[in-house]
Structure formats: structure tokens, C-alpha cells
Design a protein around this nucleic acid. Sequence first.
DNA 1: CTCCTATTATCCATAACTGACTATTTGGGA
DNA 2: TCCCAAATAGTCAGTTATGGATAATAGGAG
Lengths: 207, 207
Amino acid sequence: MAKRKVANLLALAVLSYLTQRPMYPYELSRTLRDHGDDRSIKFNHGSLYMVVQQLARAGFVAEQGTSREGQRPERTVYALTDAGRAELRDWMRELVAEPQHEYPQFVTALSLIAALPPSEALPLLRRRLDRLAASRAEIRALIDGALDQGVPGLFLVEEEYRLTLLDAERAFVTRFIEQITDPDTGWGGRWAEFHGEHPPTNERTES
Amino acid sequence: MAKRKVANLLALAVLSYLTQRPMYPYELSRTLRDHGDDRSIKFNHGSLYMVVQQLARAGFVAEQGTSREGQRPERTVYALTDAGRAELRDWMRELVAEPQHEYPQFVTALSLIAALPPSEALPLLRRRLDRLAASRAEIRALIDGALDQGVPGLFLVEEEYRLTLLDAERAFVTRFIEQITDPDTGWGGRWAEFHGEHPPTNERTES
DNA sequence: CTCCTATTATCCATAACTGACTATTTGGGA
DNA sequence: TCCCAAATAGTCAGTTATGGATAATAGGAG
């Protein structure tokens, strides 16, 4: 799996939208925003222009000419090339078939959580649970709203996936809290000791 | 939540390890690798030096002097400052309590999956399931091995979390495949039509 | 009719990251 | 004993990403 000439996932979205018709960068930008793709793909205005340049340099898109409307700045329109079509297809196949090792922030937090005393970690974890529940409700509402507007379910799978992950995380955090407060596992005990504290209890509020 | 002066999560690990004692960059690098933190934190040798510099500039660590062993290059030893201790604490609290909006690659893939015909997506998704199962077995083995070596469970929570996410993803992909192949939901039908194909079936092999 | 703001469209300076490179030393095998 | 591989310690060039800056026009409030 040699490295891609253009690695930024924003480029994948660009390739995908250019299969429909040639576009100029700003048009791509607006389309991405309108479709809510900025929820799934890290996106900022500036990097879109860079990504299009990179794609052009790699031969995946080609400048198709320029157009102008009124006195607005000139627009450079880009079209997908055959190489670009091939890249899109190959990249999508890879992304769907091969899970990537990634670094979610919460993994980092967990790997260093022993740096906090358990008496501090517990309320923070409970707070996280609240936030996760709120986040879940938001996504649920977004999906239901879109379905009501007639958006086909297929275009909302990524949000369903997010829901799945959210629920799994909530279950995990709940279990984690139990393990910390359960005196039988001994987890909370040694952890608290290390920080010079008493073992945590199941109480909702710490003294 | 104003932006952190040093945003790279590698910096968090550095702050965390420096609470134990002052270290020089290479020592930090080796310690991180030995503890397997490179599984949880995006890490490469070069950026560690940059991150330490950034931390120094921000006042979170301070050059403590230099030491030398034999004819090896001189080592610059860094120690945590009070500001650094405060930053570590505050950052950890934020990471634990506040879920961040992130962009996992599979979310991107799903958001663009309609670009592939369902006849292609199906085998790819099945392949992903295999990979996920393999990945799960690997992590399971890693955890069990570490527990056997006497590593306390608390230092393996991040791997347990990964397992949880993996299982959730497997369940999701399984459901997704069912939704595509189930003729009642109509998903596969319209999707296939759009690509000029017949609706997918439940068969394991496509003609 | 004029001013203010939002939109359209792109560019660019700066900061950050990546991967490769240098150069010495130690340990172990033939 | 000699040589190679791995470990030690750090630097740096080239590439990417980020978040404004720029600049023209359209739309609407007053």
C-alpha cells in the first residue's frame, strides 16, 4: 500500500464530486458545505485550494479553462482525468476494505489517565457521559430531520456509524467507572494510593 | 476553550512523563516507545524534538542544563515547570470530560460510499469484517500478554477501549451489509439502479 | 441613494509536520 | 580481533496545513 500522492481525505471528496461535472474550487467548497460533508471530512477553506493544486500536479484533475461572471475574480474550472477516476476508485476500495490504525483523542487520554487521581477522574468521566448523551441526541435529531426531508438513508450511514461508536463509548465509560469504584477489582485502590488518596467510592459526590 | 499554545498530543505525553523526573528528548522518545505509547499517540522521532522546543517556548518546560556520557553528543535535559504542571492537569481534564468531534477515515469512506456500486461495496465490507476480527484478536493477545507480565489493568484501558470500538464497528458493518442485501429496505435497489446494475442479493459471490 | 454586511473567489505568510540524514558508540557474532 | 548492526542523539530540508488578508459585487436597511 504505497503512499498516495495526495493523502488528504479532502482530496477524495473533491475527486468524488468531480465525477458529476467539472467545477471550480469555490463551487466545490460550497457544495461540500451544503451537503454537510464538513461533518465527515476535515475541511477548511484554505486547504481546499491547496488540495486542488496537488491533485492537478499529480494529474488527477486538469484545468479545463476559466470562466468569469460579471466583474468577479476569474474562476478556474477543473475536470476529473482518467487517472483521477482510477485513483478515486482505488482509494475508496482501500478505505472501505482496510481498517486504519488511528489516534482518537480519548485513546490518548486513557493512556495517560493515571496522571490524574481517581477522585478527579471519576467526576470527569461522568461529565463525559452527559456530553456523549447530548451528542447522541443531536445526531439522532439530525438524521431524523434529514429523513423527514426525504434524504435517502444511504446518505446518512456515516451518521448512523457515529451513533454506533457513541453508544459503544458510553457503555465503555460506564463500565470503566464501575471498575474504578468497585472495591473488589482493586483498581481504584492502588491508583488512589499512588496519588496519596483514599480509594474512591460509589458516591456521586466526593467529599 | 481557547486554543492550546502547543496542540500536538505528543506534548501531553511529554508533560506527563516529565512529572516523574527531568529527561532529555531522546530519553523521552525511548520511554514512549518502550511503554507502547506510540500505539495511542501519533509519534515520530523528529516531531518529538519540535514539540519539546515548542513546550520550552511556551514556558511549560525549562532547559535544566546539559549532560554528557562518554563521547556521545551532549544531552539537553528538560524539566517540567509549574505552568507545565498546570497545563498537563487542565489538558487532561478537558480530554477526559469533553468528547471532540473527530474524523475517522471510515466515516469519510461511508459518506462517499455511494460512489462505488453496491456490487463492489459488499465484498469490500465483508473483507473489512475479516480485517476487524484479525485486529481484535491481535489486541486481545497484546492485553492478555501484558496482564500475564503483571502490568496493572489500568495501564491497558486504552486497549480495552479500542476493543470496544472494534466490536461496535463490526456490529455496524454486519448490520449495514444486511440492510444493503435485504430487498425489503429498498436500499440496495435504488443504489444499484443509479449505477446501472441489478439489485444486490444475499449471495456470498456475485455473478 | 448610500452605506454596511454577506457572499464570492482566491492567495499567501507563517507555523507545523514528516522523513531522511549525520555521526558516534556499543554489543555481539564470525 | 575485526566488522556489522543496532542503539544513541539530534538536525534539517522540503512539504503541508492553517487562518487570515484581499478584493470585488450583491443585497438589504435606513
